[in-house]
Amino acid sequence: MRSLRSIFFIAVFAFSTPLLAQEGSLLDLLPEDDEPTEDFATAGFKTTRIINGQSFEMNAHGVLDFKISHRFGTVNSGAINAFGLDNALMRIGLDYGVTPWLNVGIGRSGGSVKYYDGFVKARILRQQTGKKNIPVHLLWVSDMAIDGNPVNNPELQPYLFSNRLYYTHQIIVGRKFSDGFSLQLMPSVVHRNFVPNKQTSNDVFVMGVGGRVKLTKRVALNAEYYYVLPNQLDPNVNYTNSLSIGFDIETGGHVFQLHFTNSRGMVENGFMTDTQGDWAAGDIRFGFNVSRVFTVYRPKD
């Protein structure tokens, strides 16, 4: 009898514990939400460029990004040139978020070399968890540059406009591994319509890698490297691979990027296939990008 009674009490007790547990959280009473959230990996980089090249981040729909970039002369050009500060190449650019997955941009580089450029950047996959599980960002970037420099060599006259064109196509696959660390790979091909000799290929295959480590909430350390596969560039010139290291500093509406790089060009064909600076020889340049975004169009939900 005793034992039956105690079983009864244990049973009642066992089934009344959920009643007590509700004091813990009323929200636990709700059934599982049948509509899981979409949790996108955001802000893997502070801005849409790592240093010279494109990052996997996009401008949001309706956002215009005004970018001003400078690359000074080489640090080893001596005190007389203020270690390169006297001689700057600059680029002014505008990027715009046409849709949530498509950005377009134009730019003009001026100084000792002159280029116009334009690009289209499309996001194919967005890293996310929740409803869908996608571990990486995947983007496509196509870029075109027009060489605006005068050609005075009489042997090359008449100089065709098509000779001035450069095309770069890139796939960016990257992942924000954590709040502090992002990494991306950028297999790329640069097509030059006009090359100086037979040993030089029109199409140049390049493998890029770039990443960032966040140092504080508002400062990150970025690095970027482009490896040009051998036997594609003019053997008469000492080309090097582009390597850049710099800091992103975010101050509310602006992102300042300060860096050292051995590349002069700020457009894909420039830094990927026309880098001649040698880090070991101090043949590097100080540079900066300033990015300021404006919301020019507010998409309706």
């Binding site: 955001t42 949001a60 909430k217 919301t295 507010r298």
Partner: peptide, 20 residues
């Protein structure tokens, strides 16, 4: 309430709100 579900008029505000 999920913090990430707050919607701002500017995308950058939303990013900074969540990130910083």
């Amino acid at each position: 309430v999920l913090i990430k579900s707050f919607e701002f008029e500017k995308a950058l505000m939303e990013e900074h709100f969540n990130e910083n």
